[in-house]
């Protein structure tokens, strides 16, 4: 008869759960899980609440700011041309920092280094508006993640994605790789492809970033969330973007 005591269990370490990646021909955007009403809300610019942030971002794009008194447009010109595909390839490897930066991080680099303005707080209205406006220019374009220098960060993100965390001892992969389509409290579990960020969540009644969404899941697992902008979030963003490579951008998406 096998007898173990609780003390013996105290030294046992949870093995990482085995998860299989989703085959490419089975990948889907969570758009596919939405009701016709919510899809229509995303599809029509006039009904997509995310477009309010896009319009605000367009105004910010042209506004001079900082000690340099320079606007985004002063350097980058017409965003409909210059920003095409930019959001689709972020997080992108930054030569100077030797690490990937996400779109919000990139905007803040421009603010502090070019405009000589203070960095915008993550999830602030301004940075969400600018990132929504920039991401809108990638709509329909395939997510790109082919820079080999991203590889170690993709792997770091993968290890975070497959690591157990929180009081509920779950991994991201257990839900999003192994159980997508199954219901969590009556709601289908999505595949976690970040095709539409920043996006408008009806639950939030607001536009939010991928980091905000990652944070929501961690709170659900009763895990300690990271500080916005933390390297762990960037690695997770880099990994899930790679995981969704080739899928079309939908920003600003609408989600329930």
């Amino acid at each position: 008869m096998l007898r173990t005591t609780f003390l013996a269990a105290a030294v046992a370490i949870a093995a990482p759960a085995l998860s299989a990646e989703i085959p490419h021909d089975q990948r889907q955007s969570s758009y596919e899980l939405m009701s016709p009403d919510t899809r229509a809300m995303q599809d029509e610019d006039t009904s997509n609440p995310g477009m309010l942030w896009v319009l605000e971002g367009e105004a910010l794009w042209k506004r001079e700011t900082g000690e340099a008194n320079r606007s985004c447009a002063d350097c980058h010109g017409d965003a409909t041309q210059s920003m095409k595909g930019v959001a689709a390839r972020h997080p992108a490897f930054d030569e100077k920092r030797r690490e990937p930066v996400d779109l919000e991080g990139r905007i803040n680099i421009c603010r502090t280094e070019q405009q000589k303005a203070p960095a915008s707080a993550r999830e602030s209205r301004d940075i969400l508006a600018l990132s929504a406006f920039i991401a809108r220019q990638s709509r329909g374009m395939p997510i790109e993640s082919s820079d080999e220098r991203l590889r170690p960060f993709i792997e770091k993100g993968r290890s975070l994605f497959t690591a157990r965390q929180g009081q509920l001892n779950l991994t991201c992969a257990q839900c999003h790789d192994d159980n997508w389509g199954q219901k969590l409290a009556g709601i289908p579990v999505p595949q976690a492809h970040p095709t539409g960020y920043p996006l408008y969540r009806l639950e939030w009644q607001a536009l939010g970033s991928l980091q905000r969404r990652l944070r929501n899941c961690m709170i659900g697992m009763r895990a300690e969330a990271y500080v916005y902008g933390a390297p762990e979030y960037i690695a997770l963003e880099t990994f899930v973007k790679w995981r969704a490579r080739g899928m079309p951008m939908e920003s600003p998406a609408v989600r329930p």
Binding site: A9, A10, V11, A12, I13, A14, A163, R164, Q165, G166, Q167, N169, M218, I219, R222, A223, E224, A225
Partner: peptide, 9 residues
Amino acid sequence: RIVGLHRVA
């Protein structure tokens, strides 16, 4: 169980 857990809030 309270051991072997990681990053508990």
